[in-house]
Design a protein around this nucleic acid. Sequence first.
DNA 1: CGCCCACTTGAAGCAGCTCAATTGAAGTGG
DNA 2: CCACTTCAATTGAGCTGCTTCAAGTGGGCG
Lengths: 252, 252
Amino acid sequence: MPTTHPHDDVHLFGTVPLFQGLRPEEIMRIHALGRRQRVSEGEWLFRQGRPATTMFLLVEGRVRVVQAGPHGQQVVLHLCGPGDMFGCSAVLGERQYPGSAEVISRGCVERFDEAALRTITSHYPEVARNAVALLAGRIQELRTRFRENITQHVEQRIAGAMLRLIEQAAVSDGRGGCRIAVRLSRQDLAELVGTTMHTVSRTLVAWQSRGIVELARQRVCVRDVSALVALAAAPGTDDPHRVPAPPPTQAR
Amino acid sequence: MPTTHPHDDVHLFGTVPLFQGLRPEEIMRIHALGRRQRVSEGEWLFRQGRPATTMFLLVEGRVRVVQAGPHGQQVVLHLCGPGDMFGCSAVLGERQYPGSAEVISRGCVERFDEAALRTITSHYPEVARNAVALLAGRIQELRTRFRENITQHVEQRIAGAMLRLIEQAAVSDGRGGCRIAVRLSRQDLAELVGTTMHTVSRTLVAWQSRGIVELARQRVCVRDVSALVALAAAPGTDDPHRVPAPPPTQAR
DNA sequence: CGCCCACTTGAAGCAGCTCAATTGAAGTGG
DNA sequence: CCACTTCAATTGAGCTGCTTCAAGTGGGCG
């Protein structure tokens, strides 16, 4: 059932942003430079702080990258699905992994070590250009997430995170709603938005009683996406008198 | 008094990470592709959301990049000093500025438009490689700041921000302490760590009474850097029984 | 001189965290 | 198929760090 044949990979690789614009035979050659590895749930692909030697392309399954603070509190940096890359900023920048990568849904990855990367970027400048755009995009995303986490309330942040998850990994539910295709505990959600499991639980239960979601163990089904959108945008019951777009004309 | 002669620029450009490893004559040619501009306090170099066409290299002075949310709350994304670049992630990634750039201390900048950038990256692959490393580094920094803002308390975050500022722009004070070379209001500090001016004020006053800092209008002098380091690391009065390094061996 | 601006300070409220106990669903082993 | 364990989630109660609202203070500058 998984994509195991080179030709399937060529197809997948072609959809990966990093390899955008390459010809199939080039992709084949790049593919030959990586090492394929099956991974299963609970496996760790790298650990925070270790020297970064390998970049990963997730072919199938799901992986999350978490960063832990000195006191044990951890934060989810990245939730990856098929086609996503991780470990790239570490290999390309400072040479230490900024977090630990755990497989949360089995599948397989393609590993590229430093030598392979050097070969690729020097032979295919296209890839280097793509890498720049990719990193730049990730910066922008991080910045937005950063601002949101600073300025928004927990409920908004949870709503926002769920929306992002839906975009990433939604499976249409039997009827109307959509289910998130990953096993996603309350704890995971909490680490994603920077709060506690307890608060997440309370919030979700409240939503459930309003018919917005349906809850199960390690699973959330969204029945009313538009309600989530509203929740993500508005602080509680939205203030109707808000300035529509504060045109930054004032000197500070 | 400012660096206005091309030769001075060659020197500065040589120290800029992006142009690391280039020969002087190459730097001269790159320099010819940029446009020099003097900027004065209060001036805005770009506005959030506008199409990103220009990348900036700060030659002299200071600039801050702020991102505003839909409700007016804003967050400082980046405080730049001489040699720093800004607007790069916007030009290289999505083509919109993620924030607005304000000059907070007059000086001058070098502007590179898209055509110039294309020329540079295609003629000098060295620069493209540097760009990747630079962006990757910025990602790592953002991630750390992200985690800290999620997991740490306001006092720790203020301490952390001040330490970062000291590293960036410290001027040794008359004796012992060091002064931060920028005009830095309580409001600025608040937006940097994601809190209110009031809380910042209270915290700083408390520190002053403990002899850690000395306060003035728009200015903070640090008298005891090590105390700040301790404050940044410890949650309140530090718990001495903490696990030194939770070796992530447990499955989750 | 008086206004404005950056800052301080007080008081009250609340969102979310912490501590603590309970529920209940999914294994596991007999 | 049933007892037992385990672990995710729920729920309650209390507390507190921070925000919000509100009122002052004092220095700088027109």
